[in-house]
Nucleic acid binder design. Structure first.
Lengths: 130, 130
DNA sequence: TCAGTAGTTCAACGAACGTCAATCTAACGG
DNA sequence: CCGTTAGATTGACGTTCGTTGAACTACTGA
């Protein structure tokens, strides 16, 4: 589960490997990614994939769902966003403060991700302060 | 110099160590940090500090200035920001698109950092789209 | 000129990381 | 049932990482 927030350095370390970064990028576009796809797209063996997905899970970056004998992984975007929040503290710049949306995180429990990744052309606008 | 942009995973890896993350955080508040301060604040030996600062330099995260026999490090916030840009692609959300400011990066050559870190209460606002 | 200081580089070490073959476990299909 | 399949675990191996003492380099100040 890993409910308590993971240290930033651990998340950075998880992202600091080419294969894991590749996995995360695939997940960002796929909304839910079958393990078999990783086996096809990555140039490493099955145990190695298992190893990397475990690290990503421990870092809180992905969520695992088991359906029958298949595994599905999904990206936990809140973790990525809260990491960006921490980085923004170090390198401030233009950024939204109040968007009237959902709470920071720890709210959506089941994977119903539908964040605008570019598929539906929903454009929005808001006032920004910093 | 490291003018060509460093791979994202290398920057992540550089940030994925507690001591280096500590160094980066200190630099974010200090605007320019003397090496001697690191020796005082960090629980490791001098060679180890040298080792970590070299990694941060190779990742493009810090800039080194030598004055006499003293070394001064400064954070390259553009690198941190462009990394946030890449992360934002994976976890989109409210964010500024056009702020009428400078170009993305590769423009300011000498270290004249003065980004609002909280010292002078300059508040700004802009329209945001995503 | 020369002892002292700031910081780097070198050499070595144990610990952690990334990889795979072999094995195991659980679910499916007949 | 029992063979097959998806994927995780285990064990082993080579590589990289983080750390330090010792040696080195460059600057200072008297």
């Amino acid at each position: 589960m890993t409910r308590e927030p993971v240290a930033a350095t651990e998340v950075f370390k998880a992202l600091g490997d080419p294969i894991r970064w590749n996995i995360v990028q695939q997940m960002a576009q796929q909304e839910e990614l079958a393990c078999s796809i990783l086996e096809d797209t990555l140039p490493v063996s099955k145990p190695t994939i298992s190893y990397h997905t475990k690290i990503l899970t421990q870092a809180g970056l992905i969520e695992v769902r088991k359906r029958g004998r298949n595994y599905f992984y999904s990206l936990r975007r809140e973790v990525l966003r809260s990491l960006m929040d921490e980085m923004w503290l170090l390198a401030p710049g233009p950024r939204l403060v109040a968007d009237g949306g959902e709470e920071p995180a720890e709210r959506s429990e089941r994977p119903a991700l539908k964040a605008a990744v570019g598929d539906d052309s929903s454009r929005s606008a808001a006032l920004l302060t910093w």
